[in-house]
Design a binder for these strands. Structure first.
Lengths: 207, 207
DNA sequence: CTTAGCTTGTGAATGAATTCACAAGCCCTG
DNA sequence: CAGGGCTTGTGAATTCATTCACAAGCTAAG
């Protein structure tokens, strides 16, 4: 398949959210123009994004809301459940474990790992906290699809290396560190400090 | 000033982090090549990014680590403290209130708001939780620079409208909603669901 | 002082993403 | 069934971002 830009995938994700909103409101069809207005983009952008994956609309009419939603779920890989492990049972790890958006989208948390002996053996949202030193063994047993990295940033890179080595192919990183991973491992970093600095830059460099 | 791309600002933020790392290691100068290697980009990219703001290096030698760090802090608006309010004292709001990265970068949390009567009046990390219904009055009194939105997504848009109306010019949004704001209000959205879907897309559409 | 060895800063070239613009196609009305 | 009113899907044009490539300039050594 032709390479798809990151920005396109992010927008597809947004469109899906809007479609679900429209579905709840009982709308059965929607035009690229309506989708675009809701998301602050342009109708041409919407149509171009979709065109990479096929042809989903009817000329003169627009898109069927449920059909397009189904197609987007398929494209985004949301038609199945995904097994997730969380590394780090600290503040962020705990907040993530409770995050309801996970289950809603078909993500199942199958394990949480930590190094703190006081936490190991306890449960977080019904999931047992495991010993970090057994990471490799447990990963090969649990076969998670996605690992969420919520460790202190000093150890983030070494944990990522261990995960990559154990066969994990997708990592969502919350440590404020720039990580290097092999080409076959996809890493997405959520870095609040960076977003905040984007804001202070905008506030500082206003015309 | 010429318009600066978002991606450029994000990279400046990353460079600053590396410079601080180099400073800790006692390095006094650094080349664009070294900065690039650390961050997985190219030396030309580093130099181009910096060139938008001036000329910070010495040919043949590279950049002075502390001087470039200072220049970047200035550019990113980190040379002062910023007043932050957090809207929503739920899981995310509480996790953010405790986030140490805030204070480190000069962000001071001046208030937390919530609608829950049981939470109002209590404190979170030494900051009083205030009644959401007094938002406008308290904002005009406290004059925050940045608002962090950590509300349920159903109310995110209406809270944003109230904030914009009360004069807040920068918002960091954690609600998984696409928000519309006036042009003079900068909104950055941190949306975990979107990042996760970027991962499932990558896992699904691997060649 | 001169040469060798680096590294910056920046126009020019390339590549990527977005927007334009319009033919093709669907629905509804009469 | 023909015409008007919409809306899609998509090449072409444009805008934006990254990479190339090299003159200019600094340092150190002889």
């Amino acid at each position: 398949m032709k390479h798809i830009a990151d920005s396109t995938v992010r927008r597809l994700s947004i469109y899906l959210r809007f479609l679900e909103e429209f579905e709840d409101r009982g709308l059965s069809t929607v035009s690229s123009e309506a989708l675009a207005r809701r998301g602050g983009t342009t109708s041409a952008q919407v149509r171009k994004d979709l065109s990479f994956f096929g042809s989903f609309g009817k000329r003169g009419l627009g898109y069927s809301v449920p059909e397009l939603a189904t197609a987007l779920r398929e494209i985004l890989g949301l038609g199945r459940t995904w097994r997730v492990i969380i590394i780090g049972a600290g503040k962020i790890g705990a907040a993530l474990a409770q995050y309801r958006g996970f289950a809603q989208r078909g993500f199942t948390i199958v394990a949480v790992f930590d190094t703190n002996p006081e936490k190991i053996g306890q449960t977080l949202e019904g999931v047992e906290i495991r010993d970090m030193s057994c990471l490799e063994r447990d990963v090969s047993e649990l076969r998670p699809d996605i690992a969420v990295l919520a460790t202190p940033n000093e150890v983030a890179q070494s944990v990522l290396d261990r995960l990559a080595c154990a066969g994990v192919k997708a990592v969502l990183n919350f440590a404020p560190a720039q990580l290097n991973a092999p080409a076959d491992v996809t890493v997405k970093t959520v870095n609040m400090a960076m977003e905040l600095e984007g804001l202070t830059f905008a506030l500082t460099n206003r015309d």
